[in-house]
Write a protein that binds this DNA or RNA. Sequence first.
RNA 1: GGCCUGAUGGCGGAGUGGUGACGCACCGGACUGCAAAUCCGUGAACCCGGGUUCGAUUCCCGGUCAGGCCUCCA
Length: 475
Amino acid sequence: MTLSLYDTMTRAKRAFVPKDAGRVTMYVCGPTVYNYAHIGNFRPVVVFDLLFRVLRDVYGADAVLYAANVTDVDDKINRKAAEEGVGIDVITNRYLDAYNADARALGALPPTFQPRVTETMDAIVKMIGDLVGQGAAYAAEGHVLFDTQAFPDYGKLSGRPMDEMIAGARVDVAPYKRHPADFVLWKPSKPGEPEWASPWGAGRPGWHIECTAMIEAALGLPIDIHGGGIDLVFPHHENELAQGVCSGHGHEYAGWWLHNGFLNMAEEKMSKSLGNVALAHDLLETWPGEVLRWALLSGHYRQPLEWNDTLLEQAKSALDRLYRVLDDAGRFLAGTPAPDGEQSPAGAAEHAQVARALHDDLNTPAAFAALFALADKVRAAIMARDAVGVAGGRGLLLDAGRLMGFLGADPQGWFQSGADDGLKARVEGLIGERQAARAAKNWPEADRIRDELAALNVEVMDGPAGATWRIKEQA
RNA sequence: GGCCUGAUGGCGGAGUGGUGACGCACCGGACUGCAAAUCCGUGAACCCGGGUUCGAUUCCCGGUCAGGCCUCCA
């Protein structure tokens, strides 16, 4: 089974072949930590976490090295720190902690490395020195600039011939630039703002050099996969590429460039029912992280995705369906004698189909379809009272879910999340009373109790083996 | 102005040169005391105009609409 990935550089889907199958490397541009991150900022987090999981599945967990950086030097950080009268580390640590907590809630595995600009300053300064030494950068008026003329392929990644860019540019060109396309590697800090020592004077790095230096420091150039949002293709990744190649680390930078599409917000829908909840941090107070993850993966990662509350409701319903199968499978197996071993696990073909879909450039909608097909097989095995099929099929469903970062919750807990112990005890008591009323065929009383449960946002479902219940809607 | 994406049923969203997945929602039936869940089943879509082809939703050209990017700072 071949893994193929769409590469922005060649604009084609290509079979993925790492330089070293025992050491697969991936780097993804992470957040600037000056505030809570928007849900759109978490799309690359979830998409590349999924790719991380797929790569670990193919090459082995220890063979995949994934670095996701954190930008903790930035004007917005400086401004926030000044507003609060604290050091930038207070701001960056606060929002980095929140970011990591949110990422975890969205089911993202921790990256192998999470380099920070402030901790990579030596490597950044060294790489700028390398570029100057290679004749690809020059110092001017306290700045160090990358000389785009030194890189003939500049513009190749984003498909922008340099002449056209200059012709269409609307921005004033700083007088110290040799070429309008040249960009900053190092610049002086403003008075009172953090600064670091360098051969060109105290100051701070430009945005683009940070990532190139962090890649070299954390993984070593070249890497197999470089990921990020499609908005970063130009100028950020174009510049990273130019820096990496010209710094003397060879002609390759990244084997595959992957870019996720944008998340489009439908503000009016969002605000009407849920308030201003564009932040993942806020959404997580209303929805399970798994629902947000499902919603983020419900379209192909390269396509734009419309984000609204309907999408979240549909994601919740879809996950409910899968968890219901797991729940029913568990109940069936708990009440069934040991299997006779005559039949096979249900859904083996569908299970393989999940991985096949993911290996086709992370086709998550097709993978979801396979997940549902697998769940249907488990359901059919339950109805056929095929214990081997159910037990095996449930295992396959859980395994496929695990590959995608789903179905990790206890099914009971999934449906009863949000209920505290007091509510649970009260619900169990009411259900007991209702069972007695139903046994006596006292339907008005049974319905009255069901209404009482409904008032507690609890839905009761009668089954042959007794009643089960769940929380009806998200709070 | 330049460059680049996208347009599929009520909603979300795959895919394909030859009867258009999947999920959510809706409708009919079974089951249920009634429901819920589940099962069976129905209905429902490829932006517009040309071209290539035996055949186009799919390939090509044009258009419309929507979105992204166009370099320290923004």
